[in-house]
Nucleic acid binder design. Structure first.
Ligand SMILES: Nc1ncnc2c1ncn2[C@@H]1O[C@H](COP(=O)(O)OP(=O)(O)OP(=O)(O)O)[C@@H](O)[C@H]1O
Length: 674
DNA sequence: TCATATTATGTTTTT
DNA sequence: CATAATATGA
């Protein structure tokens, strides 16, 4: 029996109302996510089959966490002693992937489709732009991609395309982009959702099957869903109406990605019979932290006001440090973390450093390493931005599907094998003439004949490599993908090339190590069981969709968390350090142009409300940018904090150490010395 | 065709 | 300070 007694009355109402639409609208730390977790457990307890339950979270990490918590609440077996299945708890993208893996052939894609990551999307866009005769003025591929995404997803942000000339251009680029991806049998992140919607429209039987399967739907962080995701939720639940959404308008921080707060706030419009639950007690933070957060967010005009209170007591004041530069900042924060650990026995895992941009983690990482402090960096694109990782994934994608032109072109001459840019460009136009893939074009003898003898040999050798390497993937024999990948990496001379291309041997070794680590993971989905082709596809999907997956060894053990303010949403830490509180970083300078100051403030609000016990902030007078020290000014948001809750530390006044703390500290030092 | 040298250029957040 | 796009020489 799941015990709802540990919930407060409002929470209990929300968790116990299983039928019909429910909206939980509540501030940070009021237990929204916890309510969902209990609600799922309660449903299972009441005999609802787990397979009928769908809970959508914002990140894969959140999904895993919720799955674990639900598992702890419910028994392993049901009343008849049968093993209980698990409910579906995942992100929108994983859900759509599950659906598309079954149905995608109905939409004209082949079953072995791949998901393109951002760098591959950019590659496709760049190719298109270069073919569109470089007369265009603004051709920042990243900007185009972002616009395209907004355009595709529709909703409020797509209204900017109303003007006919803009719309025509957008439509043109979209068509080119889509046919490029389609020719590669690839989809992007947005397509996962959009294709699922198309499937539902064109194949009502598939929609009906999903509706029948997921008869109870829940969505966490609903304020950050976009128009397409909104449609998806409605398609699934407009009939049975068992839909529970959870969110906080003050924590909407993904507007730049097309998220619309109105999805949350207009819930009553779309489901008039909705039961609205408001939660007001914050179980996370001290009153000081909560008051500061409330004072900051009050400066946003367009919001639903909330009453939040906490019984955790006043707690310590917020500390605000001023540092000379970013290096000093990192050094002192690390010192502070170590002081907390040695003097107050606060383990590393109870402390987190929050920052606005991923770049900021670099300086912190070096400082942490210098002091031998273990840390855990969450998110951060850098890993998948590395050349060797991108190359390797392109190899895998090309071997999974040789008609994937974009992947093939990426690695065709890496390492150099006599197929220069010019040659590949020729192959590309040959493929366009023949209306086939580059791989298919290369196989044509007349295309081969049109090349010089040398190039022709290189082409044939490359084709031989592809076919030979692909053979073991589908010959029905069991295969270790790791061994397989190691072989082709050596045979092609890729590893050698990687080492040679880097002068600095340390960095070269690092690159090889990165690659080897990734290769190791190939067999993690079990070696002999399923067919290698499918395992390869699953591996690639996990890599693109679940890139924030934590390695077990990193997850285990005591470590400080380094995380951006965006990805910290939904998490909590006893001790939080917010660094880089400078004008231009938070709020980011770009937010002034884009008129998104409110969203920056919400971001600050999210960051503050992660803290349970203590909160430390800091800003620098100067910061290194592009190798140069540039002057900085404190963030205007700092002025919004109530002055009496903040203790300033500009480095001049050394605060006295209390006797107890001092003794603990020295005791700890002694222990270390022994 | 390939490898190295030079120069330009960059603002943020992520599934 | 980095990385990526371009130019040049072998
Ligand atoms: N009724 C309760 N009694 C005790 N602790 C609670 C209760 N409800 C929630 N908590 C605790 O409060 C903390 C915040 O809960 P949770 O993460 O679910 O809040 P949230 O509303 O989802 O927050 P956020 O919006 O910031 O993500 C958790 O540590 C949770 O265990």
């Amino acid at each position: 029996m799941v015990n709802l007694a540990s919930l407060n009355p409002q929470q209990r109402t929300a968790a116990a109302t299983l039928k019909g639409p429910v909206l939980i609208l509540a501030g940070a730390g009021t237990g929204k996510t916890r309510v969902i977790t209990f609600r799922i457990a309660h449903m299972i307890d009441r005999g609802i089959a787990p397979v009928n339950i769908l809970a959508v979270t914002f990140t894969n990490k959140a999904a895993r966490e919720m799955q674990q918590r639900v598992s702890k609440l419910i028994p392993k077996k049901d009343r008849n002693g049968e093993k209980l299945e698990r409910p579906t708890i995942c992100t929108f993208h994983s859900l759509c992937l599950k659906i598309l893996r079954v149905h995608i052939e109905k939409l004209g894609y082949k079953k072995n489709f791949v998901i393109y990551s951002e760098s591959e999307q950019l590659g496709a866009i760049k190719k298109i732009l270069s073919h569109m005769s470089a007369k265009g003025e603004k051709t920042d591929p990243a900007a185009i991609l972002s616009l395209l995404s907004k355009y595709k997803n529709g909703g409020e942000s797509a209204k900017a395309f109303a003007e006919p000339s803009v719309a025509a251009l957008a439509q043109h680029i979209r068509k080119k982009y889509e046919s490029a991806l389609r020719a590669c049998n690839a989809v992007d992140f947005d397509d996962l959702i959009l294709l699922t919607l198309r499937l539902f429209e064109e194949h009502p039987d598939a929609l009906q099957a999903c509706r029948d399967k997921y008869t109870y739907v829940m969505v966490d962080e609903y304020q950050d869903t976009n128009a397409a995701q909104f449609k998806l939720v409605h398609s699934l639940s407009s009939e049975h109406r068992n839909i529970c959404v959870v969110g906080d308008d003050d924590q909407s921080i993904y507007g730049w990605r097309g998220a619309e707060i109105s999805n949350l706030l207009d819930m009553e419009k779309h489901f008039p019979e909705v039961k609205v639950v408001k939660l007001e007690q914050n179980y996370r933070s001290t009153t000081t932290i909560l008051t500061a957060a409330n004072a900051v967010i009050k400066n946003n005009t367009q919001r639903r006001g909330k009453q939040l209170w906490s019984d955790k007591g006043q707690g310590k004041r917020i500390t605000l440090h001023t540092f000379e530069n970013d290096e000093e900042e990192s050094k002192h924060i690390v010192q502070q973390i170590e002081f907390m650990r040695l003097a107050s026995q606060v383990p590393w895992e109870d402390q987190a450093i929050l920052f606005r941009t991923n770049q900021q983690s670099r300086g912190l990482e070096t400082a942490l390493r210098q002091s031998n402090v273990r840390y855990h960096l969450i998110g951060g694109q850098s890993y998948f931005d590395r050349r060797e990782i991108k190359d390797f994934l392109a190899y895998l994608k090309m071997l999974l599907n040789p008609h994937d032109d974009i992947s093939l072109l990426r690695i065709a001459n890496v390492p150099a094998r006599g197929l220069s840019d010019v040659t590949m460009e020729r192959m590309l136009s040959a493929s366009q003439e023949r209306d086939c893939s580059v791989y298919a074009a290369m196989r044509h003898t007349d295309v081969q004949e049109s090349c010089l003898n040398r190039t022709k040999e290189s082409l044939i050798e490359f084709l031989r490599f592809i076919d030979e390497t692909r053979a073991p993937l589908s010959d029905g024999q069991s295969l270790s993908l790791k061994v397989w990948a190691e072989k082709f990496l050596t045979d092609t001379g890729y590893i050698e090339e990687l080492q040679r291309s880097e002068k600095n041997p340390d960095i070269a070794d690092n690159r090889v190590r990165n690659l080897k680590e990734l290769v190791e993971k190939l067999d993690e989905n079990g070696v002999p069981t399923t067919n290698p082709m499918e395992r390869l596809q699953t591996f690639l999907e996990d890599m693109t969709l679940d890139s924030d997956r934590e390695e077990d060894k990193d997850n285990k053990g005591d470590a400080v968390t380094l995380i951006t303010m965006h990805s910290c949403k939904g998490l909590e830490f006893p001790h939080v350090y917010i660094v880089g509180m400078e004008d231009g970083l938070l709020p980011h300078s770009r937010s002034k142009v884009e008129n998104t100051l409110d969203e920056e403030r919400r971001l600050f609000y999210v960051a503050i409300t992660r803290a349970m016990v203590t909160l430390t902030m800091s800003y620098c007078i100067g910061r290194k940018k592009y190798g140069q020290m540039l002057p900085c000014h404190p963030s205007p948001f700092l002025k919004e904090l109530p002055a009496d809750l903040v203790e300033l530390d500009d480095g001049k006044a050394k605060k006295p150490v209390t006797e107890e703390v001092g003794q603990n500290f020295f005791a700890a030092m002694k222990r270390l010395a022994d």
